[in-house]
Amino acid sequence: MDNLFLTSVLIFVACCIPTLVCLVGIDLVGRPLVISAIIGAILGDLKTGIMCGATIELIWLGVFAIGASNPPDMLSGAVIGTAYVIISKAPIESAVILAVPVAALVKLINEVRWTVINVLIGSKADKYAALGDRKKVELMHWFSLSWGVFLRPVIIAVAIYFGIPWIEQVVASIPGWLSDGLMYATGIIPAIGFAMIARMILTKQTALFLFLGFILAAFFNLSIIGIAGLGCVIVAYLIFNKNQKEAVIDDNEF
């Protein structure tokens, strides 16, 4: 089991990366699309890792933190789902079997940090601010952040070390209809994510562009990059036309 121990340590390190690189402005490393690829590289199957990442990312595409509503913990879901698929050579869709419940579970642990620990740290910061102690105010942020860096990686690494052998047995007993049903679900669930995004950014004026994108893909087989490129052209056209019309009255510095 030496091998599993080393793997768990490497996965621990990998799970610390997203928070750390975010501090220098590189965001989204903790999204399934990226972290699953990193896990794939650690476990020696980069390609499967990348494909698991895409499958899990599609499930949670519409999900992100807005205001006080926090999403499931995608980092732990993606890592454990991917690790399971690679280690037990399961089909890629089955990454979702583990990812969804794990993410919901680890979110509960995050909630403890957000409702209790960070609130207490905040009231400490209030005290130091009243005393004018700037260094201590800054320290409170670092203190809270260091919890954030290590808490989930520890949970994930422990889960990998103790859980994988046990999970393999459980999953081996999963009947075919369950994994088949799950496969169909993974095809449908992305629709929820797309609908969430559309609900957020769609207006009466822009709704037709959603259909334009759909038609370009369905009838012209254009790739997403092609569609995004065409979108940029349309936007540029609109801006140039607008500027020409407004050139006479336009007096701002932008």
């Binding site: 950014i201 994108g213 370009l216």
Partner: peptide, 14 residues
């Protein structure tokens, strides 16, 4: 949102 919605539309199909 124009570019975003076009991409969403494409992904709905793909």
């Amino acid at each position: 949102s124009i570019v975003g919605l076009m991409v969403v539309g494409g992904m709905v199909y793909q």
